[in-house]
Design a protein around this nucleic acid. Structure first.
Length: 569
RNA sequence: UACCCCAUAGUGUAAUGGUAGCACCAGUGAUUUUGAUUCACUUAGUCUAGGUUCAAAUCCUAGUGGGGUAACCA
């Protein structure tokens, strides 16, 4: 028998300081509190789609189970049929699995309705619960306020027999919604509002998505949650900070019922700059068409991030990087973006794509000639090999890679300037062609045949390297550029008379319809990810892309020092 | 107004009574056929006031600041 602390067994968690929850668990392990057993659970209510904040909780709960050879259940907290639906159950299961986790057990609070009912009866018999017939308004008035203790309900001293009778009839459907509630008999004078005789059951003649019409009374969260944890032998019940005041109640039920003591621990929920994270607000964004759907790539939902091109690994890495504490905090969205970049940089194939094309004609390159150039697929991964790309007389380059009157720090193409076409040749701009309105429509350039592959035999240097696509071989595509959903860091911080909606970024989506891609991209499959060199990471949209019309989403830009310099001026 | 939680570089986190460390951001430089990547360096921090102690970011008290809480929601 050893008293050594068990060391985490999850590679993504290694080499990291333990967060306070892990420290609690290790202390429990050392003290042998649960005979070395660690069992967590992720308990979403199926009333909306999961977002990155839930990912933090998922990574915490499932991650702990992995690290300490424990278990983690997925449990749907479906005690309020008015809001819940199987549509959400399905999406939540999909999202958890996509994130890379497997639950040990999958349960629903509704699985336990009968047990919950019996335990409620037990509390009534013990004189610890009573049927109250106050209306909602009366209940609120009796509860008192922060500066005023509550008053006992006139029904508080009903006999056990009467309570039993009434509760049985509540269950039998003899009463209308709101006529009675079952309340815990605790303390109307408690400074903690949750202890002022909280409701345990309410009458709702509503169809439940899993129990159909079997029940017309439904347990409240506070009564159900701890008992569900206890039934499942959950050792560490981890939830967010707003449930802190509920902990005494959580403990009260388990103590009075004398059943397995699960313990509740609270951590700070995740906030990220330039977005909002409450289910209510996300729902509002969808319903008012500020975004297209729950899986709009601008949404912080798991499904939105997935469609945007985020990987489960990147999200998991983000969640471990941000840590777990009790401090309210807001993480910079660049952390999330950086997690994606660092993974994709190592793994993803490089391709050339011209988003805003400018035609270049190489006057001294023979017409009809195609020169195949060798291009590296991923400089970070030699095993990714190389590919051949066609170089021809007519090419597209990025409009932003040319300036008619460039500043000295501009390393790209300008009249009379020479640049390298990546994996191509050096070219020099000889002439700028404009249309009637004065817009640049074409560049006439010459190339140096001696610079094939991008090196000059005379050793001369060129300041810039730009990407290009052969006109003849280019694949047409639509590319969607996403920016932050909100233009302010903290969208919920608003002036008088404004709402977070006033902080929406009007340019969060830019659709480019005339993009020219390297030919190999024509075969890209939905969900496939690439780095478009010098631009960013992109993925094929899983919903709207088709063979005839590929649609790419920009997942995240590359770091762009040039853009930063320009902003500063 | 009552109660609860929290307070460490710009941001986020570590140090669990014994040298305040790490990451991101920012800045500078090197390398570079992606203004990417990579590498090196730099800036900058314990909310305040008391107390306990040989020793306090850490323990205690008060204050200040931030957050949360009065659904028959979760």
């Amino acid at each position: 028998m050893t008293t050594d602390k068990q060391s985490p067994d999850n590679p993504e968690q290694e080499e990291r300081q333990k967060n306070f929850v892990e420290q609690i668990i290790e202390a429990d392990l050392t003290a042998n509190t649960h005979e070395g057993r660690v069992h967590t659970r992720f308990p979403p209510e199926p009333n909306g789609y999961l977002h990155i904040g839930h990912a933090k909780s998922i990574c915490l709960n499932f991650g702990i189970a992995q690290s300490y050879h424990g278990k983690c259940n997925l449990r749907f907290d479906d005690t309020n049929p008015a809001k819940e639906d199987t549509e959400y159950v399905d999406s939540i299961k999909e999202d958890v699995q996509w994130l890379g986790f497997e639950w040990d057990g999958i349960y629903f609070a509704s699985d336990y309705f009968q047990q919950l009912y019996e335990l409620a009866v037990q509390l009534i018999k013990a004189g610890k619960a009573y049927v109250c017939s106050l209306s909602v308004e009366e209940t609120r008035a009796y509860r008192g306020g922060w500066d005023e203790v509550g008053k006992d309900s006139p029904y508080r001293e009903r006999s056990v027999e009467e309570n039993l009778d009434l509760f049985t009839r509540m269950k039998a459907g003899e009463f209308d919604d709101g006529e009675h509630t079952l309340r815990a008999k605790i303390d109307m004078g408690s400074p903690n509002m949750n202890m002022r005789d909280p409701a345990m059951y309410r009458i709702k003649h509503i169809h439940h998505h899993r129990t159909d019409d079997q029940w017309c009374i439904y347990p409240m969260y506070d009564f159900a949650h701890g008992i569900c944890d206890s039934i499942e032998n959950i050792t560490h019940s981890i939830c967010t900070l707003e449930f802190e005041h509920h902990r005494p109640l959580y403990d009260w039920f388990l103590d009075e019922l004398d059943i397995f003591r699960s313990r509740q621990y609270e951590f700070a929920r995740l906030n990220i700059t330039h977005t909002v994270m409450s289910k209510r607000r996300l729902l509002e964004l969808v319903e008012n068409n500020h975004v297209e759907s729950w899986d709009d790539p601008r949404m912080p939902t798991i499904s939105g991030l997935r469609r945007r091109g985020y990987t489960p690994e990147a999200i998991r890495q983000f969640c471990t990087r941000i840590g777990v504490t009790k401090q309210n905090s807001t993480h910079d969205i660049s952390w999330l973006e950086d997690s994606l970049r660092s993974q994709l940089n190592k793994e993803v194939l490089r391709r050339a794509a011209v988003l805003r094309p400018l035609k270049v004609v190489i006057e001294n390159f023979p017409e009809g000639h195609v020169e195949m150039m060798e291009a590296v697929n991923n400089p970070e991964d030699p095993s990714a090999g190389t590919r051949e790309v066609p170089f021809t007389r007519e090419l597209y380059i990025e409009r932003s890679d040319f300036m008619e009157d460039p500043p000295k720090k501009f390393f790209r193409l300008g009249p009379g300037r020479e640049v390298r076409l990546r994996y191509g040749f050096f070219i020099t701009c000889q002439e700028v062609i404009k249309d009637e309105e004065g817009n640049i429509s074409e560049l006439r350039c010459t190339y140096d045949p001696e610079t094939r592959g991008g090196q000059a035999p005379d050793g001369r240097k060129v300041k810039g390297t730009i990407h290009w696509v052969s006109v003849e071989h280019a694949v047409d595509a639509e590319v969607r550029l996403y920016d932050h959903l909100f233009q302010t860091q903290h969208p919920n911080d608003v002036e008088q008379g404004q709402t977070y909606l006033d902080n929406l970024n009007p340019n969060s989506l830019e659709i480019l319809k005339n993009c020219k891609l390297e030919s190999s991209l024509g075969e890209a499959q939905p969900g496939e990810r690439f780095q478009f060199e010098r631009l960013g990471y992109f993925c094929v949209d899983s919903r709207e892309s088709s063979d005839s019309k590929p649609v790419f989403n920009r997942s995240v830009t590359l770091r762009d020092t040039w853009a930063k310099m320009q902003k500063k001026g």
